Simulated assay, not measured.
Amino acid sequence: MDLGGFRTLQGTQVTDIPGIASRKRLTNLMTLSVDTSFWSRYRDDKRNPDLGDTNFKQAIPALFAGKFTAIPRNNGELMIGSTVTSVDTHAQAVANTAGFHFAFIEQGGSSLYPSLAQRVTSLEVLRILLSIGPTETAHFQIWHDKAGNYVRPLTDLSQPGLVFPEINVGDDLLQTNLVMPEPTFFLSNTRFPPCSIIRTTNTVGAAMGAGNALTADGLFDGQPPQFFEFLKDLAHEADEAEREI
């Protein structure tokens, strides 16, 4: 499968790194709406999206509500130490956005691989999914931890609406040091006692859900309609797979 034909998006115009500004991209990291509800979902000990629970609290509501960059867009956004603080406020906001976006991507992978593994017949494909999936979870935990350690609450005046609040405010669903998944209900509310799990792992519509989440995230902003049709067809085929014993 070759996606090279869709590698047409303009990336960062930073010229301090040779070749970066001229390179075309498949994804867009400059207009992101980052869903940070994973933060409370993994801290909630009474709800599980696999059991129909929804509307988990956003850790950074502004990131989900707007469209912001997770990379410096030009040389001017690389300013470090240009204020009385050690890092320019805008540069720090870009780094914060990147940290939460990394965590968002990796929590999605943590769910997608076990969800798809339930549908495969080929032992080789199963091995691929079971080999890559746990590394996604390892990445998620690292970025989950790093994202919560941003230097200080801040407001990025150069990106209207972008506010990183103090999230350690007495709400256990937002507490930054709770990076291990809290035990919650699994498979049913009564069949098993609460346990620490990946959530979600529901296999129904998993691939389409992942594609929709990445699209809503803004990761493919600027791609033509043909790209989204291709993505939808690919996800549909994955979701139609049935495990044969």
Rank of each mutant, 00 (worst) to 15 (best):
P225R: 01
F192Y: 12
T200A: 13
F185L: 09
Q223G: 04
V204P: 00
N189V: 08
T184N: 08
T190Q: 08
P224T: 13
S196K: 06
P225M: 01
N202P: 03
R191W: 13
R199M: 14
P194W: 10
G211N: 03
E229G: 10
T200P: 15
S196E: 07
V179R: 07
D221W: 04
R191C: 11
F227G: 02
Q223F: 07
P183G: 11
A213I: 05
N212S: 02
F227D: 03
F228K: 00
Q226I: 06
S196V: 02
D221E: 13
R199Y: 08
G211A: 01
S188V: 07
I197W: 09
F230E: 02
M180D: 08
N189P: 03
I197G: 09
Q226C: 02
T203K: 15
N189W: 09
N212I: 04
K232L: 01
F227P: 02
D217M: 04
T215W: 03
G218F: 05
L214D: 04
D233W: 00
A207T: 10
V179A: 02
V179K: 03
F228D: 00
A213L: 10
V204M: 03
L178T: 08
F227R: 02
P194I: 09
G205C: 06
I197C: 14
D217W: 06
F220E: 03
A207S: 12
T200M: 12
G218Y: 08
I197D: 07
F227Y: 09
N189D: 09
E182F: 14
P181I: 10
N212K: 06
F186S: 15
P181H: 11
N189I: 05
T184I: 07
F186L: 14
V204G: 00
T184C: 13
D217K: 00
I197R: 14
F227N: 03
A207M: 09
I197F: 09
P224A: 12
F192I: 00
Q223E: 06
S196C: 04
G218T: 02
D217I: 00
N202C: 11
V204K: 05
N212V: 03
Q223K: 04
F227W: 10
A207Y: 11
G218D: 02
V204L: 06
L187H: 08
G211E: 01
F228V: 00
G218L: 01
F220T: 03
Q223A: 04
P193V: 11
I198Y: 13
T203I: 07
P225V: 01
N202K: 15
G222V: 05
A207Q: 11
L214F: 14
F185R: 07
A213M: 07
P224Y: 10
T190M: 04
F186V: 15
L214E: 08
L178A: 06
F186Q: 15
P181N: 12
R199E: 12
E229C: 03
F228T: 00
G205E: 08
L219R: 06
G209K: 04
I198L: 15
T203M: 15
D233Q: 08
